[in-house]
Design a binder for these strands. Structure first.
Length: 722
DNA sequence: AGTCGGACTTAGCATTTATTCG
DNA sequence: CGAATAAATGCTAAGTCCGACT
């Protein structure tokens, strides 16, 4: 449906349909697009407020013009500012404006400009005509069918390139933010009457509140941790808080509680869900999609952006990682009264669910979150924030890699410095220098101190204790070996035997003198002291930058080393994965071997065997066909030889692919690649590698990852150097 | 210098969805 | 086509780091 007719200053007319307008303008502006509005080819902050102005992304504008112009005429393509040297200024590095300035323009001033294009700028003005007056006219000019069909695709391709725009000044995260608030967990549905809970062998009907908490436990019955003392103790304590006085006086011993019937019921439910018909499944899917469409997006500064976690965490039993002292505690249901909403003053403020109120509505554009609440287990704040594909996350990510690249420039100096500091007279300086050496060489985390008894006992570099390392003056033919054995983040074990320099070794001996196993190894050091020192060495330098730097530089160097130009694509990808793996090992990104690992490995092996047989068969056939051709010497048999040859080649290739896959999987058994890929490896390294060797980017990044790294995919060329 | 709340990144496992296989 | 398997996505815990305050 054509709803608007637009006339350019030079008389060219554009028709826009509904979807088109929605897509490019954002919701608010569309609603108010009245009889006369101004349009710009770049975002105008004031535009959002004044309701009479809106903007097109520039490229979209021209493409739209191409598709929609009734009397087609190639619009003047206004070039961006000169392309300096193809190098995109980094967010932090450079304070000079990026490609598209975003400064607030006075709308009137634009209006009074010299024409529809201002030389040297990319402004382009449109006048939206009174759509009623033009309706009759627009009817007889029909838009070609082909263009109509092409259009949705165009929209898909037209992604906002925020990385070509200027950033906001430090501290300001947005100018306009509108969203629909969070989606709450579905309310509790009491169990059907026939599902029983037994206490001490007797049926007992629970109050709704007590029953709800009981179902949380029942759902976990198969898990090992429901047998753990701490889990049971914590659960029982919190459960009793939800009980009525009568229940409380009856139910005094968790061991006398029988949840098995409830558990069976839930298992049956899960099974039933699996068995649902296609239509029912589709219905659920549609409903989820509707929810996503309504609540999964927000408008931030003229752009519709995807929200990461718009659903509030449902209530349940807390299960920390590792040996967590709070496991089994009740994670309570979050109500609107717990929720703080953050949005623009002039936005449509999301209404709380009927009969409820928000805890608070604030308008803080110094933060990126849309919704927050305080969680009851640790008392920490949880947030609803944007998806990694959003501008606000992407900019930060890009900046992180730029900081790491700055470290690259001065890392030698820093290394020399800490080696000097090993000899310092000051204990504090020595400890700092040894800790930094570990962080640099082993990619250890900083290691903040944690409150004892509140979380699992895990450590990082600065919080290492004497009991976590063993010193071996000599081990397996190597001198000065340090053996690390401790639980790190998520209670993942770090175990490593590392030869270190003599001076480090001697220092460690010194630090351990007269200490108990549970004493801090670096007793004069913490992360704040360390980071303060790092800040002096380089602006923006913190302990974690070393992890980013070492991960990315390792990938780049491993790719150089491992890629064989003569390899085919699968073999090159194996090389990529191996380079990725080297990083994952460095960062100690482990995973539990998948439960079905052995089985799936065997399946793959049998596939390989089958393929081998198939290859042998194909070769035999080729041989006989060749013999046949020699005798008959006719066209037909020659052709047969050719096709058999091709078959052999194809099977060989398939076999090789399978074998590569098997190697890859075996090597990956206990190593998780995704964490480093997503958080530590500068995506531009991967993009450049793909471009250099002609590997399709889809082989390296899946759809979500491509969205997250759109900036890198767009800007990195083959010659990118980290 | 140390403590603490707050904001944001990083992490692995669980669940869902897509693909392959029989 | 449905089951099995693999890949992708979702979930939320657990880190890092900063700045206000004492």
């Amino acid at each position: 449906i054509i709803i608007s007719l637009i006339r350019l200053d030079n008389g060219i007319e554009l028709k826009l349909n509904d979807a088109h307008v929605h897509f490019s303008f954002g919701l608010r502006v569309v609603e108010s697009a009245g009889s006369c509005s101004w349009f710009y080819s770049k975002p105008q902050r004031t535009a959002v407020k004044s309701e009479h102005c809106c903007w097109f992304p520039r490229d979209f504008f021209f493409e739209a013009a191409a598709s929609f112009l009734c009397c087609f005429c190639s619009p003047p393509r206004i070039k961006d500012e000169p392309d300096d040297d193809g190098f995109y200024a980094s967010p932090k590095e450079d304070s000079k404006p990026l490609k598209r300035p975003r400064e607030d323009d006075d709308v009137k001033a634009c209006f009074q400009g010299e024409g529809n294009t201002v030389p040297g700028s990319n402004r382009f003005f449109l006048i939206l005509q009174d759509s009623k007056a033009k309706k009759a006219k627009s009817k007889d000019k029909k838009v070609p069918e082909a263009d109509k069909r092409k259009k949705p695709k165009k929209e898909e391709e037209q992604k906002w390139k925020w990385w070509e725009e200027e950033r906001y000044p430090e501290g300001i995260k947005w100018k306009f933010l509108e969203h629909k608030g969070p989606v709450f967990a579905p309310p509790y549905e009491p169990l059907p009457e026939n599902v029983k809970f037994y206490y001490d062998g007797k049926v007992m009907k629970l109050s709704t509140k007590a029953e709800e908490v009981a179902t949380f436990f029942a759902k976990m019955l198969d898990h090992e941790y429901t047998t753990k003392e701490i889990f049971r103790k914590n659960f029982f304590k919190d459960w009793r808080k939800e009980m009525t006085p009568e229940e409380k006086s009856t139910i005094t011993n968790l061991s006398k509680c029988d949840f098995t019937h409830m558990s069976q019921y839930f298992k049956a439910q899960t099974e039933a869900r699996k068995q649902m018909s296609k239509e029912e499944k589709q219905k659920i899917k549609d409903e989820n999609e509707r929810l996503l469409k309504e609540y999964g997006y927000c408008v931030m500064d003229n752009h519709k952006e995807r929200i990461a976690n718009f659903k509030i965490e449902p209530p349940g039993l807390f299960r920390g990682r590792g040996n967590h002292p709070k496991m089994g505690m009740l994670k309570r249901r979050i109500m609107p009264e717990d929720i703080i909403i953050n949005c623009s003053k002039d936005s449509k403020i999301p209404p709380p669910p009927p009969g409820h109120k928000w805890k608070e509505v604030r308008h803080d554009n110094k933060v990126t979150w849309l919704v927050s609440w305080t969680e009851n287990i640790q008392g920490s704040i949880k947030y609803i924030m944007l998806n990694p594909s959003s501008r606000i996350k992407g900019e930060k990510d890009w900046q992180k890699y730029e900081t790491a690249r700055r470290l690259k420039k001065c890392v030698d100096k820093i290394r020399n410095q800490y080696r000097e500091d090993w000899k310092s007279k000051e204990m504090k300086v020595r400890q700092r220098a040894v800790a930094l050496y570990f962080i640099d060489k082993l990619a250890l985390r900083a290691g903040n101190e944690k409150e004892e008894g509140e979380t699992a006992d895990t450590v990082g570099c600065c919080s290492l204790r004497v009991e976590h390392i063993k010193l071996h003056p000599e081990l397996d033919g190597q001198e000065y070996v340090v053996e690390f054995d401790f639980l790190g983040k998520d209670s993942i074990r770090y175990y490593n035997k590392v030869p270190v320099e003599k001076r480090v070794f001697k220092n460690l001996q010194l630090f351990m003198e007269n200490k108990q196993p549970e004493d801090d190894l670096f007793d004069r050091l913490n992360t704040s002291i360390l980071n303060k020192h790092l800040q002096d060495l380089m602006e923006g330098l913190t302990a974690k930058v070393f992890r980013t730097y070492n991960a990315s530089i390792t990938l780049q160097q491993q790719l150089k080393e491992l890629t064989n130009p003569d390899d085919n694509i699968p073999a090159k990808i194996l090389s990529y994965n191996r380079a990725n793996r080297a990083v994952a090992i460095l960062c100690n990104h482990q995973r539990a071997p998948p439960k079905t690992f052995e089985k799936s490995m065997m399946n793959l092996q049998s596939k390989i065997d089958a393929k081998k047989e198939q290859l042998a068969d194909a070769r035999r056939e080729l041989k006989s066909a060749k013999a046949d051709a020699k005798v008959r010497r006719d066209e037909k048999s020659k052709k047969s030889v050719e096709s058999k040859k091709k078959a052999v080649q194809r099977i060989e290739e398939q076999l090789m692919k399978l074998e590569v896959q098997a190697t890859d999987r075996e090597e990956n058994k206990q190593i998780a690649l995704s964490t480093s890929k997503l958080n530590y490896l500068d995506p531009r390294i991967s993009v450049a590698w793909c471009k250099k060797w002609g590997i399709p980017i889809e082989k390296i990044y899946n759809k979500t990852q491509r969205e997250k790294f759109a900036w890198a995919i767009d800007m990195a060329e083959e010659d990118f150097e980290f």
